[in-house]
Amino acid sequence: MKIVIAMDSFKGTLAADRACGIVAGAIGAALPGAEVVVKPMADGGEGTAAALMAASEGLWIAKAVMGPRPEMEVCVGFGWLPGDRTAVVEMASASGMQLLRPEQLDPMKTTTFGTGQLIQSALDHGAERILLGVGGSATVDGGVGAATALGWRFLAGDGTPVALGGASLGRICEIVPPNCGVEIPVDVLCDVDNPLCGPQGAARVYGPQKGATPEMVETLDAALSHLAVLTAGWLGVHIRDLPGAGAAGGLAAGAVAFMDARLVSGIETVMTRAHLRSDVADADWVVTGEGRFDAQSMRGKVVSGVARVAREGGARVAVIAGRVELPAHLYEAAGIEAALACAPPGMDSRRAAERAEELLSEAATRFAAMYLGT
């Protein structure tokens, strides 16, 4: 029997490679004769660089950059895939919510400048392609901060540069390109379809979780709309209604406007570079999972992508997640045969996180007993 383990991270608790290792260890112990193949997964958010480095014998290049607030410095870096000189930049590592305490969340002040510094570092390192993961941002600045770090100038009516942060977008009157822009391909790993502005845009949908009050949401949405008008007028680039442009507080839109980027599927990129399809082609089972298996899991996330590839290859699919909140008839309709929760009913999230490794191992052992004939 061949079993492919393709887990996402359990956000804030277990990295994808650790989750895969735990599941593989439990299944291997229960079924010693099985061939178990480990493929850590990600969709552009947390763990994307690690998953791609694991698939390509990549390296980590450390770099100190600005954090999500201008007064912060964070020691982060980017993944380096030497085979094709590709840099993997996770914007959340420099500009993400996990770097801030709840009282520090404020998209009027947070910036993607540090993400731009990472991109510049990758260029200086000799990158010939950049994969930009955009999950987990603390920002709603339309990518203006990142572009500023790359040499773009955003000027107010009096000719002075505007300050960093979402609050300043509405003050921009002129956009001045750098002498030398980003001249290599940039792929934004993006699995949402939100436009930049409007009811489904970056500010209205994601602003509140980043600390925006209702008043801030209105201000930021108007500011992003203003930015879209400017990019159309100054650059001839139309980002307002582009599907996916609203990802990461509009960083996706900014990457298109200021880096000539294209928006691509994060999970599809990771699966392709990890050669998941070839491993699944002769597999009996594929086991995937994440911290919370819910309706969002089936909308362009790791679980939905892995399940699709498994079905195409004729393998049976199981999900092991911290919590399972999707009714059986919905996941079965997507071709997922089994879904097991790690946390027992009634266990609070803090306790479940403390026992995450133990609970995941126990769930994988239960899966083996129930479905693999052990």
Rank of each mutant, 00 (worst) to 15 (best):
H125K: 07
E218S: 13
E312F: 03
D221R: 02
G181Y: 13
A149T: 04
L132H: 12
A30P: 03
M97P: 00
G12I: 08
L360R: 01
C190Y: 05
G12Y: 07
R153W: 05
G145C: 08
L131S: 02
L81K: 01
C190P: 00
E358D: 10
P208Q: 11
C342S: 12
V134C: 08
G211M: 08
D187A: 12
L99M: 13
A247G: 04
L164W: 09
A368L: 08
I175S: 09
V74C: 09
S95F: 05
G266I: 04
M97Y: 00
A328R: 07
V134S: 08
A334F: 01
G25N: 14
G314T: 05
G305M: 06
A138Q: 04
P199H: 01
S361Q: 07
A222F: 01
G25W: 11
S361A: 14
G291V: 07
I3R: 03
A167R: 15
A19F: 13
P161F: 06
F113A: 05
S225R: 13
L99I: 13
L230M: 15
D191G: 01
P185T: 07
V205D: 04
M53A: 06
R299T: 08
E46G: 04
K63R: 15
P102R: 11
T115K: 06
I320H: 12
D279R: 13
A50S: 15
A212E: 10
D260R: 15
R350S: 12
M72Y: 02
L150R: 12
V186D: 03
T288F: 05
M41N: 06
M108Q: 15
S93G: 04
L14M: 09
R308H: 10
V140M: 04
L31V: 15
E325V: 10
H226W: 14
E358Q: 13
M41S: 11
G126E: 07
S278Q: 10
I320R: 11
C197L: 04
L359K: 12
D191F: 01
I27W: 10
R355Y: 07
L372N: 06
Q209C: 09
T86E: 06
V38I: 12
G142T: 11
G198W: 05
M72P: 01
T13V: 15
D8R: 06
M1P: 13
P214V: 11
P107Q: 11
Q296V: 04
S278F: 01
V88Y: 09
G254V: 08
S137V: 06
L99V: 11
A257F: 09
H238G: 03
D8G: 14
R350A: 15
P327A: 14
G33R: 12
A149W: 02
R171T: 14
P178S: 12
L155M: 12
A34E: 13
V37Q: 08
E332W: 00
G305C: 02
L132K: 07
G313K: 08
F367E: 03
G58C: 04
E312R: 09
